[in-house]
Structures are given as C-alpha cells and as structure tokens.
C-alpha cells in the first residue's frame, strides 16, 4: 500500500513549515468552496497551478489523480445541465440543456479541481506523520491526533495482513465472482481481519502499559517558523484575501 505519494521531493513547498501549509490549505478551501464569481474562481485556479509548479510534482501523476477524483463531478455533468432551470441551449431527445445549468456544473468542476490541486501541492507534499504533529501543535484534540497516528501506523501492517489472507485464499483456488460463495468468503476474510486487529490491539495496549503509558502523548517533532515560512505565509494569505475581496467586495 502506497501512502505519501507526493511527499518525497525537495521543493520549496516540501520544506515549508507544515503548520503554514495546513492553515493556508484551510483558508483556501473554505473561500473557494463558497465562492461563485468567475474572477475569484479564475484567481483560485491560477493560485493552485502556481502552487503545483512550485511543488515540482509529476504532472502525469497529478493528472491521473485528478481523473480518479473527478468521478463524482462526471456524474453531475450527466444530470445538472438538464435539471437546472434557465435559457435553453440544446436538446437531446426529451432533455433540454440550459446555459445556466452548464455554467453551474462548470463552476463546480473548477472549484473542485482548484481545491484538489491546492491540497495535493500543500498537504500531499508533507508526510502524513509530520502533518499529525503539526495538527497537534495547532491544538487539534490530542486523542484525535493519537488516533490518527495509530491508524496510520497500523494501516500498512493490516494491509500486509490482508495480503497474506488473500494469498491464502488464492492458494486454495478462490476465484471471486458474483455468487454467494464469494460474498461469504469475503465476509469471513473481513471478519478474520477484524479478529486479528482486535488481538493485535490488545497486545499493543499491554505493551504500552508495560512501558508506563498514562494517557499523555508526546509530540516529538517541533517546528520553528523561519523567514521563508513567514514570507510564504504572508504571500498565500494575501492571495487568499485577494480572492475573498474579488468574491465579496469588488463589484462585477
């Protein structure tokens, strides 16, 4: 199982303080998610693409990722142009597509992809464990951070466990198909995965108690804001503020 796909690299964004990246990603996502003016959305796309260039990620991989993420958006393209009221543009049998409908879906598509690209460039370039530490420093409840760390840690262990169970099934000539036998076998596979996790969790709990765990979780990574972090933070905040003013203050 591959995690942290985009996290390896040595660009300016990879080295930026993760707290800065998280805050910038949050503000950017929220503003874009609620914006609807064309100028603001155009600025959002430009900002996302600029981030992508700075992060120097493989364009091919980013495009592949976008294709997967846009499944829901493709689905909306099938419906919204025909169900959104407005001026008639063309007809497909009994269906009438409206100009407003197409503009609306297009707007959703732009918003969605602008946010996804920014998230790849900002959060994808940080190893997930580092993000956890940064979230801890940003006062996210420690139990939640704790849960995140443990989940990430055991995700890969359990995926290996799953591979092992799956290999055992294959050796016994299991071939999945649309039948009750397949569903029963996969249900038992999931059940076995849960049983193994349950036992493993018990061992972890005991091991932690042996080592004197008393509910305190120590954050080992600490971050220091350097000049470049502050500069980047200011630049990103100015851009996001500019987008907000394009949306709400400056008249069309």
């Amino acid at each position: 199982m591959h995690i942290d796909n985009f996290a390896s690299g040595d660009s300016l964004l990879h080295r930026l303080d993760p707290r800065v990246k998280i805050i910038a990603a949050m503000f950017f996502s929220v503003i874009v998610a609620v914006a609807d003016r064309p100028l603001c959305l155009a600025a959002a796309i430009c900002f996302s693409l600029a981030l992508l260039l700075i992060a120097r990620l493989s364009i091919r991989e980013v495009l592949l990722r976008l294709l997967a993420v846009n499944a829901f958006i493709f689905f909306l393209w099938l419906f919204l142009p025909f169900t959104y009221g407005g001026e008639k543009l063309f007809s497909l049998g009994p269906l009438t597509a409206t100009r407003e409908g197409i503009i609306y879906v297009f707007q959703i598509t732009v918003k969605s992809n602008a946010i996804v690209v920014a998230l790849i460039a900002l959060l994808g370039t940080t190893p997930i464990i580092t993000l956890g530490h940064a979230l801890g420093h940003l006062r996210v409840p420690s139990k939640l951070i704790h849960l995140l760390f443990f989940t990430v840690r055991y995700l890969q262990v359990l995926h290996l466990e799953y591979d092992r169970l799956r290999a055992a099934m294959r050796i016994r000539a299991f071939r999945p198909g649309t039948n009750l036998h397949t569903y029963r076998s996969l249900a038992y596979l999931i059940g076995m995965l849960l049983v193994k996790s349950f036992d493993r969790a018990e061992r972890i709990r005991k091991a932690m108690l042996c080592r004197g765990f008393h509910g305190e979780f120590y954050l080992l990574s600490h971050f220091e804001l350097e000049r470049i972090d502050l500069v980047m933070f200011l630049i990103m905040m100015v851009v996001v503020g500019g987008m907000a003013s394009l949306q709400w203050i400056i008249l069309k």
Binding site: H146, T151, L155, P176, T178, R205, M208
Partner: peptide
C-alpha cells in the same frame, strides 16, 4: 485512553476492508 489502540487498529482494518473490490 485505554481504548485508543483498539479503535485505531479497527479503524485501519475497516479502511483496508473498504479497499476490497467485491465483484
């Protein structure tokens, strides 16, 4: 706090289970 490992490991298990492709 005692329950965190259990919830986390089960969360990971459900995450893995949700990746299984069922024909």
């Amino acid at each position: 706090n005692e329950k965190i490992p259990r919830v986390a490991v089960l969360t990971a298990a459900f995450f893995v289970a949700s990746l299984i492709r069922v024909p």
